[in-house]
Amino acid sequence: MDYETKVRSEVEIWKRKLIKRSSMVKRLTEKAQGKLNQFIPEKAHQLITESIKKMIQTTLFGSDFLTKKRDTTALSLEEKEKLINEKLGVYKRAAAVEGAGTGAGGILLGLADFPLLLSIKMKFLFEAAAIHGYDTSKYEERLFILNIFQLAFSSDEHRRNVLSIIENWEQEKVHLMDVDWRILQEEYRDHIDFIKMLQLVPGIGAVVGAYANYNLLDQLGETALNAYRIRILDNSTKRIENE
C-alpha cells in the first residue's frame, strides 16, 4: 500500500470518529454551558468576544512573524508529515511545561495560561502550514488555520459544519470574508472550560495543567494533520481528473 492510499484510509477513519456523536456526559456538559451562556449579559459576551478576537489576532500576526519560512517542495507528503509530527512533539512538551507552571501558581497564573496556550497552538498551526508550503501571509491561509482551530475545539454540530468547509475549501474560501468571532470564542471556551477550571484548584493544578495542555495539543495536531490531508488529497484528485 502506497502512502497516499494509506493516508486516504486514515482520513476516512478520522472523519467518522470526528462526526461521531459525543458521549452523554459531554452532551449534558455542552447543554449546561449553553444554558449558562444565556444568563451572561450581552455586554459581557461582547467583551469576551472582543478580548478573544484581539488575543487570537495578536497570535496570528506574531506566529507569522516568528515562523521560519522553508522550501519543502521537494519533500513527499510522508516526509512533510514526519516533520510536522516532530514539531508537534516539541509543542506538546512546551504546552505541558507551561500548563504545569501556571497550574502550580494558583488562580492568577492559571488565568495567564489561556493566552500562553493559545499562542503555542497558533505557532504550531503556522509551522504545519509552512511545512506544507502554504503562504501564511495570505488572508485565506489564516482563515484556513482558524477553521482547523475551530474543528479541533468545538461542539458536535459546529464541528460538522467546519469539516464541510474544509472538505470544500477551494469553493468555500471565496465566500468566507471573515470569522464569526462570537461563535469561535463560545465554542472554544465551552470546549475547554471544565478541564481548565480544574487547573485552578490548589494541589492538583500543576498535574491537571500539564496533562490538559499536552492532550489539547495532541488533539490539535491530529486535527491539523488530517485537515491538510483533506485539502492536499482533494487537490491531487482534481489534478488527476484534469490530466
Rank of each mutant, 00 (worst) to 15 (best):
M1L: 08
D2Q: 06
E4L: 13
K6H: 08
V7F: 12
R8G: 10
R8I: 10
S9N: 08
S9V: 09
I13Q: 15
K15E: 13
K17Y: 10
K20P: 00
M24C: 01
V25H: 04
K26P: 00
K26D: 08
R27I: 04
L28P: 00
E30Y: 10
E30R: 13
K31T: 12
G34E: 09
G34F: 12
L36Q: 06
P41M: 05
A44Q: 09
A44D: 01
A44W: 11
Q46M: 11
L47I: 09
L47G: 01
I48K: 11
K53N: 06
M55Y: 02
L60H: 02
G62I: 03
S63Q: 08
K69Q: 15
T73Y: 05
T73G: 08
T73M: 07
S76H: 05
S76G: 10
K80R: 15
L83H: 08
N85F: 14
K87R: 13
G89I: 05
V90W: 11
Y91G: 07
K92W: 02
R93H: 11
A94Y: 07
A95L: 13
A96I: 14
E98P: 00
G99C: 04
G99S: 11
G99T: 13
T102Q: 13
A104M: 06
I107D: 03
L108P: 01
L108R: 12
G110Q: 05
D113E: 09
D113C: 00
I120R: 04
K123D: 11
F124D: 03
F126A: 05
E127M: 04
E127H: 10
A130P: 00
H132K: 11
H132G: 04
H132D: 08
K138I: 06
Y139V: 07
L143V: 13
F144L: 15
I145Y: 07
F149K: 07
F153E: 04
S154M: 00
R159P: 07
R159G: 10
N161V: 10
N161Y: 10
L163H: 06
L163T: 04
I166C: 05
I166F: 03
E167F: 01
E170N: 11
E170M: 02
K173R: 15
V174R: 12
L176C: 04
M177D: 13
V179M: 14
V179D: 06
W181V: 08
W181Q: 09
Q185F: 14
Q185E: 15
Y188D: 03
I192W: 04
I192F: 15
D193W: 09
I195M: 09
K196F: 15
K196Q: 15
L198G: 02
Q199P: 01
L200C: 02
V201K: 10
V201H: 02
P202R: 02
P202T: 07
G205R: 06
A206Q: 06
V207Y: 12
N215C: 01
L216F: 14
L220I: 04
L220F: 02
L220K: 03
G221K: 07
E222L: 12
T223W: 03
T223S: 10
A224Q: 05
N226P: 00
A227T: 12
Y228D: 12
R229N: 14
R229L: 05
R229A: 15
I232E: 15
N235F: 06
I240C: 01
E243P: 00
E243K: 12
